[in-house]
Write a protein that binds this DNA or RNA. Structure first.
Ligand SMILES: [Mn+2]
Ligand SMILES: [Mn+2]
Ligand SMILES: [Zn+2]
Ligand SMILES: [Zn+2]
Lengths: 149, 149
DNA sequence: GATAAATTGCAATTGACTTGCAAAAAAATA
DNA sequence: TATTTTTTTGCAAGTCAATTGCAATTTATC
């Protein structure tokens, strides 16, 4: 039920293993980003990661390239929470269609909470539990159409 | 059930009335954009609108300002279908939490289909009806948190 | 350790979207 | 209708997330 997404605090060794398992070179930046994502209580944006790593310690373009690679390899999930940039979070290995979660973001203060699982009928209860009101939801689908499959 | 969103073909007069009803000046550009949105079978991006109106007939900045105003006034809905830009569609007057629809976009060819209504349990059937497979969905929420309300 | 392959920093670039300003058009007033 | 006030428009410049080419550095492979 608990995903690797947030607040997991993986170790440096675990991070490096994750990289190797996915055929990604074990570099300092890539390890740092994995650690940051696992420590964070909410999905992070590229520039938040950049700030945390320290602008002196790496270039923002390297962060973008890393995030892109992580996404290609399926290590992370790319989220649009109604801001004008993406946020990224770790995916759990068994994180699939039927096991994943979503988020709530306050349209006022921007605070982000994680929902426990994806079962839309249950969302209303979670919102009141979290103290969120005036909910709006964003839901769209992508897939492969008949012409393309 | 059918919304004003697509394929409605409102008349120029209807478009201008819609503008007046919402306290927006009845200009040529604004009328054109309304007509285009009502004629389109799928939500349009700013640059698609720009191409259709003709780069000689107006400036892209005017289109952006118009789309922003429409959105403020609640005439349109702004959609993120997993592309790196927004799409816009007309909202129906009684289009609320409990009466709206979503879309499917092909990750291969980009084709976009409109779903009939928002009832997630029913989506699977619609996807097979539409011939879409390998579905992915994007769902996130915004709301007002306890601190802010 | 030597060599091949991937990653990095830096600087330049793209593309969506915004903004200031003066001219033009629309709305409000008379 | 004529005049005044308000809003919109075009144009040009700017912002900011995200991408890219290239040479230097680091990591993987042998
Ligand atoms: Mn999460
Ligand atoms: Mn639609
Ligand atoms: Zn879900
Ligand atoms: Zn819905």
């Amino acid at each position: 039920m608990k995903t690797k997404c947030c607040d997991t605090h993986i170790s440096e060794e675990e991070a490096q293993n994750l990289l190797s398992e996915n055929g990604i070179s074990r570099t300092k930046i890539k390890t740092s980003i994995l650690l940051l994502l696992s420590k964070s209580k909410k999905p992070l944006s590229a520039s938040e990661i950049y700030q945390k790593i320290g602008p002196k310690n790496c270039d923002i373009s390297s962060i973008w390239r890393t995030l892109k690679k992580f996404h290609e390899k399926g290590i992370t999930r790319e989220l649009n929470l109604g801001e004008d940039f993406f946020r990224y979070e770790l995916k759990d290995s068994h994180d699939e269609q039927d096991h994943h979660h979503h988020h709530v973001r306050c349209r006022d203060c921007g605070d982000i909470k994680q929902l426990e699982e994806c079962d839309l009928s249950a969302f209303d209860k979670m919102f009141s539990k979290l103290g969120f009101k005036k909910m709006e939801h964003y839901l769209e689908f992508t897939g492969i159409c008949s012409k393309c499959s």
